[in-house]
Amino acid sequence: MKLTSITLRLVKAPLKRPFTTHLETVTEREVIVVEARDQDGGIGYGEAVPFSSPWYTEETVKTCFHMLEDFLIPKTLAFDLTHPNQLAGLWSGIRRNAMAKSALEQAIWDLYAKQEGIYLGKLFGGERTEVDAGVVVASDHIEDALRQIEEGLAVGYRRYKIKINPANDTEYLTQIRRAYPDIPLMVDANSAYSLSDVPHLQKLDDFQLMMIEQPLGHDDIVEHAILQKQLRTPICLDESINSYHDAKSALMLKSCGVITIKMAKVGGWSQAVKIHDLCVEQDIPLWCGGMIEFGISRAHNLALATLKGFTIPGDISSSSRYWEHDIIEPEVIVKNGVIKVPDKPGIGFGIREKRLDELTSYRIVYK
């Protein structure tokens, strides 16, 4: 699969509504779109989804662009690549920088699947023809949170995730359970608690939650194991899972009962599938996480979620939840709580070139 060029684009658009956690409020999203082109003019697409500041991970849009431009792309174009499986070894001397690696790997896997004439998910054994969709509710105001849940119910989302912190958790959950006693509900703490909060966290057991996502430190595995022993509600690890090794260590320590895989955060398709296979082997429920992304990353996540281990609805919402107009066609649509999986080669979606150009602030081609 001879690569002839790789293009980077900085793409930016405002969100339709602010996305608020105790760490940050996001009103505008900037990403890097990666295009890998072959000798026949075929193009594969990936999306780097760090934030503009390092509030979620240490990677940012600027650091990611730097790693792609100065290290990953030169190594890749100088190598006689025959299969995407070679990328992990090729990049082994570059530590971490998972989101940069994921974006370029996504583009090359998409290109390879198009060359093979197969839907990307099927390359890795994905069999689902539709994927259950969950939605994230992130707001500073309970009235707005309740309104977002009501909007989600109208679409039929199969799972609802509420952003919480120690200042609002029991109030939010009490009001939500009063209004919606039976909805599939989970919470995401984004590392807002510590082990000193165990008595407080134990109160959340009364709300019949599917899971509590990342209650403790963003890089912790050990303390989560201590906490999990004291809760009835399963802990889900997200920020702590940045590699196969992290997932393996967390399962060895019994730090969680659920894992979410964010392809961008673990370094791309190869690592994501290895973690998936490990969790299937150990009977650990999985769901696919999201990063407030545009349609290219969303399409890759949808393909990943077709694998059999993803038994819990993931954070794969409709394109229209965040964007007036997405950069893919057709847009991702949730109907009656599910997303139909495309059957076209690669990611299965086309690119709205005009829309992509409108949102592109900078573009550079490497040959």
Results as ranks from 00 to 15, higher is better:
residue 47 E to T: 08
residue 201 L to R: 14
residue 234 P to M: 13
residue 174 T to G: 06
residue 158 R to H: 05
residue 302 L to A: 02
residue 339 I to C: 02
residue 100 A to T: 06
residue 72 L to V: 06
residue 346 G to P: 03
residue 348 G to F: 00
residue 21 T to P: 14
residue 76 T to F: 04
residue 365 V to M: 10
residue 284 I to C: 12
residue 197 D to F: 08
residue 256 C to F: 03
residue 364 I to L: 11
residue 128 R to C: 00
residue 360 T to P: 12
residue 153 L to W: 00
residue 119 Y to D: 00
residue 110 D to H: 04
residue 147 R to M: 05
residue 182 D to P: 00
residue 311 T to W: 03
residue 140 D to K: 11
residue 333 I to Q: 12
residue 321 R to Q: 14
residue 286 L to Y: 08
residue 74 P to L: 01
residue 268 G to S: 10
residue 69 E to A: 11
residue 48 A to F: 02
residue 60 T to N: 10
residue 357 D to H: 03
residue 222 V to M: 02
residue 11 V to M: 06
residue 50 P to T: 10
residue 333 I to Y: 00
residue 262 K to Y: 13
residue 316 I to Y: 05
residue 87 L to Q: 09
residue 9 R to V: 03
residue 5 S to D: 09
residue 167 A to T: 10
residue 124 F to Q: 08
residue 268 G to C: 10
residue 188 D to L: 14
residue 91 W to G: 05
residue 169 D to E: 15
residue 145 A to P: 01
residue 146 L to W: 00
residue 11 V to G: 05
residue 335 K to E: 15
residue 118 I to E: 13
residue 162 I to L: 15
residue 50 P to Y: 07
residue 44 G to K: 04
residue 136 V to W: 15
residue 67 M to K: 04
residue 97 N to D: 06
residue 251 L to V: 05
residue 165 N to K: 13
residue 18 P to Y: 04
residue 32 I to H: 05
residue 333 I to M: 10
residue 75 K to V: 00
residue 230 Q to Y: 03
residue 256 C to W: 01
residue 92 S to W: 01
residue 217 G to K: 02
residue 164 I to K: 10
residue 100 A to F: 05
residue 195 L to V: 10
residue 96 R to M: 09
residue 316 I to C: 06
residue 327 I to S: 02
residue 106 Q to D: 13
residue 347 I to N: 05
residue 169 D to Y: 09
residue 272 A to Y: 09
residue 57 T to S: 15
residue 311 T to I: 14
residue 326 D to R: 00
residue 25 T to I: 11
residue 233 T to E: 08
residue 209 L to Y: 05
residue 290 G to P: 14
residue 62 K to P: 01
residue 192 A to W: 11
residue 81 L to E: 07
residue 315 D to M: 10
residue 196 S to D: 15
residue 138 A to V: 12
residue 80 D to I: 00
residue 293 E to C: 12
residue 347 I to E: 04
residue 296 I to K: 06
residue 246 D to R: 01
residue 177 R to P: 04
residue 209 L to P: 08
residue 204 L to R: 12
residue 217 G to V: 02
residue 200 H to L: 15
residue 107 A to F: 05
residue 332 V to T: 14
residue 293 E to G: 13
residue 87 L to P: 09
residue 235 I to R: 01
residue 79 F to D: 05
residue 52 S to I: 14
residue 260 T to I: 15
residue 316 I to T: 07
